[in-house]
Design a protein around this nucleic acid. Structure first.
Length: 316
DNA sequence: CTAGGGGTAAAT
DNA sequence: ATTTACCCCTAG
C-alpha cells in the first residue's frame, strides 16, 4: 500500500534544488548519480525526485501540472530577483521554465505570497547550512548572507534569524558549537550545524548497491598521542559532568558527539597531512567516547536509553 | 529514462 | 480538508 512516509529533509530538498540547478530539471538520474548529491539523496529514487519536484512546483504556484486552476493567475509582484544564476547561460527554454519553481519558490514565498509568508525560516536555515557545506557548520553571518543572496528577506530578517537560530539550537534541531576552539586554523566556535537526526533509519527498497557510495562517518583515525591541552579540557568537562543532572549530562554528551563530528569534518577538509587536525578530531572523538562510557556506567536505565536513542550510536 | 496523469494514505 | 510522499501506469 501507499508508503510509510519519509518526509523530505531540508538537506535533501536543498540537494535536489542544487541538483536541478546544476543538471537541469528532469535530469533526475543524473542528479542521483552525481557524487555531490548521492550522499544525501541515496535513499531517493529518480521518481521520488520527480515527484518531489512536482510537489514543490505545486506549492509555489497553486497549480503544477496537477490541480485545476481554481484561481485566476494572480500577478505576483515580481519580487523575483533575476539572480546571476549559473543557469542563465546556455540553457534551453525548456530548462529555464522548468527550473523556475525553484527561483519563485523561495523568493516569492518569503516576501510576496501573503499566505505563505510564514514559510519556514527553519527550512531556509537548514538549506543554507547544507548548501554552504562548510566543514563543521556555518556561522550566523554566513547563513544570513546565504539567505540574503538567494531570497529577498524582510529588513528585520537578521533579528528574526538570530532568534530562530537560538530557538533551533535550544531545541536540538541545530547544534551550536562552542566548546571546541580552532581546529587547524579553522574556527569552529559559534558555528551552527544540523543536529545528527539519526538519519540512519534504514529503508526498505533501497538497493544495496547504492549504499556503497559513502560511509556516513569518517575515516579511521589511527594516530596515537593525544593533544594534551584538549585532554585536560576533556577532564574538566568530565568532572563537571558528574555534578550534573542526567539531562544536562546527556545534553553535553550529545553535543560532544556533534562536536566530534564537526572536528572530524574540519579535519577531513583541512589538509590531509595535518597531524594536529587529526589529533584534535581524535581528541574530540575520544571525549565523546569517554563521555558516553562514563555516562553509561553511572546512570539510570532511563538515561541509557535516552543516550542510545540519540545519535550517539551513529558515531560509534 | 522522463513527463504526466491518476490514485492511496499518512501527516498536519 | 489539505498537503505531501509514494506508487503505478502509459506514451514518448
Amino acid at each position: 500500500m501507499g508508503a510509510p512516509k519519509q518526509k523530505w529533509t531540508a538537506e535533501e530538498e536543498a540537494a535536489l534544488k542544487a541538483g536541478v540547478i546544476k543538471h537541469g530539471a528532469g535530469k533526475w538520474r543524473t542528479i542521483l548519480k552525481d557524487p555531490e548529491f548521492s550522499g544525501v539523496l541515496y535513499l531517493r529514487s529518480n521518481v521520488d525526485l520527480k515527484d518531489k519536484w512536482r510537489n514543490i512546483s505545486v506549492m509555489v504556484n497553486g497549480y503544477g501540472s496537477r490541480e485545476k486552476p481554481k484561481l485566476a493567475p494572480k500577478m505576483v509582484h515580481h519580487v523575483l530577483r533575476q539572480d546571476e544564476n549559473p543557469m542563465a547561460a546556455g540553457q534551453t527554454d525548456e530548462d529555464i521554465s522548468d527550473a523556475k519553481p525553484l527561483a519563485v519558490s523561495s523568493g516569492a514565498l518569503l516576501v510576496a505570497n501573503p499566505k505563505r509568508t510564514t514559510v519556514r525560516l527553519d527550512n531556509l536555515i537548514m538549506e543554507a547550512i547544507t548548501s554552504l557545506k562548510e566543514p563543521g557548520g556555518s556561522h550566523k553571518t554566513a547563513i544570513a548572507s546565504y539567505i540574503e543572496e538567494q531570497y529577498w528577506p524582510p529588513n528585520d530578517f537578521k533579528r528574526i534569524l538570530s532568534a530562530k537560530l537560538k530557538y533551533l539550537a535550544a531545541n536540538g534541531k541545530l547544534i551550536k558549537l562552542d566548546t571546541l576552539g580552532d581546529v587547524r586554523g579553522l574556527e569552529v566556535k559559534r558555528k551552527y550545524r544540523i543536529a545528527p537526526t539519526s538519519v540512519f533509519a534504514e529503508r526498505r527498497r533501497v538497493s544495496p548497491l547504492l549504499l556503497e557510495g559513502r560511509q556516513r562517518i569518517s575515516p579511521k583515525i589511527e594516530r596515537d598521542g593525544f593533544n594534551m591541552f584538549t585532554m585536560s579540557q576533556i577532564d574538566l568537562d568530565l568532572g563537571r559532568m558528574r555534578t550534573m543532572t542526567a539531562e544536562q549530562a546527556a545534553e553535553v554528551a550529545a553535543r560532544a558527539v556533534a562536536e566530534a563530528e564537526a572536528a572530524i569534518a574540519v579535519a577531513e577538509e583541512a589538509t590531509r597531512e595535518a597531524e594536529t587536525a587529526e589529533a584534535d578530531a581524535e581528541a574530540a572523538q575520544a571525549f565523546a567516547e569517554t563521555a558516553r562510557k562514563t555516562l553509561k556506567g553511572r546512570t539510570t536505565p532511563k538515561m541509557v536509553e535516552f543516550i542510545t536513542a540519540s545519535s550517539l550510536n551513529d558515531l560509534f
